[in-house]
């Protein structure tokens, strides 16, 4: 046997081992348990997902779905491609970046109708009624994060850049905001925003939130995604999953179901106090279902197009990906 033959055989063996290690059996289509990878840890912002899991929505649809917690290191789109997950939650920028790099991903529903990424500030010390009002303030930014892109876009509406305002890089620690060293701090409105607002309220301080959408910057947040091949090859399966999940979200956002929803969330998020979770659920409700007439999961095509345009404009992607062609209206599966 020559060196080349040995090399080829070695490579083939290695590839087989790698494929097994990655858990990609050829009979994947026959698999009955489906993995649904969230974007973040179990908390109130995923109330609908937890409610679906805990209250038998998936089982009623004849599906065995394992809802898996997310984290900063976990990327649902990569897991879809590697076969670790069948459905997932990803932010719009993740979807657009993935499409640019050839990933086969489609958007099934848009969880948040209003992006929870907003800036908290003390009122009346800070007053923002127009993006130009931002100029004298020290603004917190997570460099490399969504909020950097959103703030850049917001400032661009008044022909400013981040270099024209005072910016402070932020992390997990709220101390600079609590110490009044930073005037506007980026938070997820329905999780950290609630905690910070309560904390400052105890000190007698009032807060408000800067929502970039109020000034025309619609940057889409989390959405439910799957692979294009799964959506094309098994539309019935996708329809059942989506129908069950959106029904659970509708139920979870109904104030009449507050108690069972909080009980379901509490089971997984034991570290947050009940009253904080109740406030977080109220805040989530406004973001997911801002109007009773808006169905949960509605995809805002114009906002997706704007998100892509923003990313293209800021050089976060180099070529258009035509993301709107990858949006699947939830109604089309039902």
């Amino acid at each position: 046997m020559t060196h080349i033959q040995r090399g080829v055989i070695g490579m083939a063996v290695w590839m087989a081992v790698a494929a097994c290690a990655l858990g990609i059996p050829t009979a994947q289509a026959e698999q009955t348990r489906f993995n649904y990878r969230l974007k973040w840890l179990f908390n109130t912002s995923v109330a609908g997902d937890v409610f679906a899991m805990e209250n038998g929505f998936f089982a009623d649809a004849g599906l065995d779905v394992q809802v898996k917690e997310g984290s900063p290191e976990k990327d649902a789109i990569k897991e879809l491609e590697l076969g670790y997950a069948h459905f997932g939650v990803a932010s719009a920028d993740q979807v657009i970046r993935a499409l640019e790099k050839g990933a086969d991903v489609v958007v099934l529903a848009q969880v948040f109708q209003v992006n929870p990424m907003q800036w908290i500030y003390r009122y009346p010390q800070v007053q923002i009624t127009h993006p130009a009002d931002l100029k004298p303030y020290n603004i917190g930014i997570t460099f490399g994060g969504n909020d950097e892109t959103i703030m850049q876009t917001l400032l661009a509406t008044i022909d400013l850049t981040l270099g024209d305002v005072k910016v402070t890089g932020v992390r997990f620690d709220f101390t600079p905001f609590l110490k009044n060293q930073v005037d506007l701090w980026p938070v997820y409105r329905n999780s950290q925003g609630v905690i910070l607002a309560e904390r400052l309220a105890k000190e007698g301080e009032t807060v408000r939130f800067l929502n970039p959408a109020d000034f025309g910057v619609d940057f889409v947040a989390n959405s439910i995604v799957t692979s294009g091949s799964l959506a094309a090859d098994h539309p019935d399966l996708v329809a059942r999953f989506l129908s069950a999940l959106l029904a659970a979200w509708e139920a979870a956002m109904d104030p009449a179901n507050q108690a069972p929803v909080l009980a379901a969330v509490k089971k997984y998020d034991t570290g947050t106090q009940g009253q904080v979770q109740a406030a977080q659920l109220n805040a989530t409700r406004i973001l997911v279902k801002p109007d009773p007439d808006i169905p949960v999961g509605r995809i805002q095509t114009a906002a997706w197009a704007q998100t892509e345009a923003i990313m293209l404009d800021q050089g976060l992607i180099r070529t258009p990906v035509h993301v709107t062609s990858r949006l699947r209206n939830p109604a089309s599966f039902q």
Partner: peptide
């Protein structure tokens, strides 16, 4: 090389 072999073997996109 190993990463590229996995990419080729599993037909993964540039995103992964």
């Amino acid at each position: 090389g190993l990463l590229l072999a996995v990419k080729t073997g599993l037909s993964l996109s540039d995103y992964v």
